[in-house]
């Protein structure tokens, strides 16, 4: 078989020419055994294309949905355990959280209501509260989140603006990243609460907070 024949067959296999192309038909008439073989290779070409498309699509989707937690996980896997250090990022995150807490506390002291029910600090989660109050049957929606396979999204309700101590109520968000309180949930709450969403992982035996929303000051409607 000549290089010209191979080129023609490659064009057919890759879908560049139609099976009815005169030159191809002439080749198949001259070498009938090539027809079935070329068709099999066209199938193989198709399978390779599907594999390659899958790879491209997965990579593109992954690039678009990579979270900070993913990046930290990759770095952690690349770092020998004996050389892991206390991540500076967590300290920075704690400082930012503290600063936000102080600002919110001062707002609370001045008697100012929470300005908007949806906040997003750019890096953390957003928490959208329809109607701006905590009401039975009304969903709270967490945004800007991609929940990892070993992570949970929770809504924490505190009685004070510093979110000190344990939450008085913790709700688990559903697959749509929503949590809807019921009447029973609200019964034990004070008239004003402070609510935030947290993305946690039960790694290391206790919930490790990876991302969180700012704390929202909400009135409770019963």
């Amino acid at each position: 078989m000549s290089q010209q024949d191979d080129e023609l067959l490659a064009s057919f296999v890759a879908g560049e020419i139609s099976p009815d192309a005169p030159a191809l038909q002439a080749l198949f008439e001259r070498r009938p055994e090539l027809r079935a073989k070329a068709q099999e290779l066209a199938q193989l070409h198709g399978r390779l294309e599907r594999e390659a498309r899958l790879e491209r699509e997965v990579i593109a989707e992954a690039r678009a949905s990579t979270t900070d937690f993913d990046r930290a996980r990759v770095v952690r896997a690349a770092t020998p355990a004996s050389r892991r250090r206390a991540p500076i990022l967590w300290a920075a995150a704690a400082l930012v959280t503290l600063a936000i807490g102080v600002v919110l506390l001062r707002q609370g002291e001045r008697g100012e209501p929470a300005p908007i029910p949806t906040l997003n600090d750019g890096q953390g989660l957003s928490l959208d509260v329809a109607g701006g109050e905590l009401r039975a049957g009304l969903a709270l929606t967490v945004g800007n989140v991609d929940v990892g396979f070993n992570q949970q999204l929770k809504i924490e309700v505190f009685g004070d603006a510093q979110a000190a101590g344990a939450a008085i109520l913790v709700g688990k968000a559903d697959a749509q990243h929503k949590w809807t309180p019921n009447l029973e949930d609200l019964a034990a709450l004070p008239a004003t609460v402070f609510v935030r969403a947290v993305l946690v992982s039960p790694e290391d035996g206790s919930d490790q907070v990876y991302r969180e929303s700012p704390l929202l000051r909400l009135s409770v409607s019963r």
């Binding site: 992954a62 949905s65 990759v74």
Partner: peptide, 18 residues
């Protein structure tokens, strides 16, 4: 390299879903 490979866990989630 670390930044480029940061998407590996997300690749796994995507492929697993598919």
């Amino acid at each position: 390299v670390l930044t480029r490979l940061g998407c590996v866990p997300a690749m796994l989630r995507s492929l697993h879903r598919r």
